[in-house]
Nucleic acid binder design. Sequence first.
DNA 1: CGAGTATTTCGATACTGTCCAAACCCCTTC
DNA 2: GAAGGGGTTTGGACAGTATCGAAATACTCG
Lengths: 153, 153
Amino acid sequence: MTVDVVQRLREKGLRVTRQRKVIYSLLREIGGHHSVDEILGLLVERREDIHRQSVYNVVGDLQQVGLVMCADAGPGRALYEASDHWHHHFVCRVCQIVLDVPCIEGRKPCLEPPENVASVIDEAQVIFRGVCHGCAGAKVTDTPAASISTADC
Amino acid sequence: MTVDVVQRLREKGLRVTRQRKVIYSLLREIGGHHSVDEILGLLVERREDIHRQSVYNVVGDLQQVGLVMCADAGPGRALYEASDHWHHHFVCRVCQIVLDVPCIEGRKPCLEPPENVASVIDEAQVIFRGVCHGCAGAKVTDTPAASISTADC
DNA sequence: CGAGTATTTCGATACTGTCCAAACCCCTTC
DNA sequence: GAAGGGGTTTGGACAGTATCGAAATACTCG
């Protein structure tokens, strides 16, 4: 918990500040994927006076330390989450919700880790896209969602 | 080529406008991944007078039609490219360059979709991260890139 | 060719992320 | 426990990205 973040920061030579502890425990508590401004809003609700820039700094630092990961969910604002284990993400084309997809250990992606492309490849994150259960159920009429089909981003 | 875009737009009930033809053939010609503002810059160079908002509109439309795809390369601005075949991307942690990674399957759901997560999953795009050849050669000192490690799938 | 409407244009605006200097406070040392 | 040093936070300003609404334009069909 809090012991974890303190220890981890010390290990990496980063100082243990109120802001870092608060933001990490917040992300841990609420779970899910959140943008910097969402985090800022939640902090304001809880009477935590933390500057915008600090949120950017802190999530960046926590990411370096390995306590937070940035969810790949397509272009746009960055989404952060407290990272327990490596996993992938599903993004609904209709409501944009982001869901975790467990990473099946040992099962490599459909393509062999590409040769020649780069010197070091240490991460492979998958983005699945489609329509979530909620939107699939709700959609009865011919919403634009029906015509999205293939070839969308 | 141009016949293609005209036909494709008509099929989907979209009008064939100068802007749509110009932007598509531009993307087709130059290849690679480009942001809206990069596209806009290239259009200006070529004396093509097209409004910013129109570029947003057009790439969105072409994407719906399947002539353009949005490259998943992490958060930030969206990168568009003329879509020939389905593929994935490698992003360099140092210089942020985006490189294509061929997909062996070549078609959309190239990874077996996870169960229970959603109703429809029609796309799985992979983002590989690491250090490209250029940056790996240039880097002699202990850059932060060296401490990234773990978190592989 | 003319009417109707999709599309483009224009200006304004919200959002996201970054930069810099000054104030602050965490950690180490004594 | 006090003091110093330097990593962090803060505050304000700023560039870049993307969206909105209304008016003008131009593509398509009859």
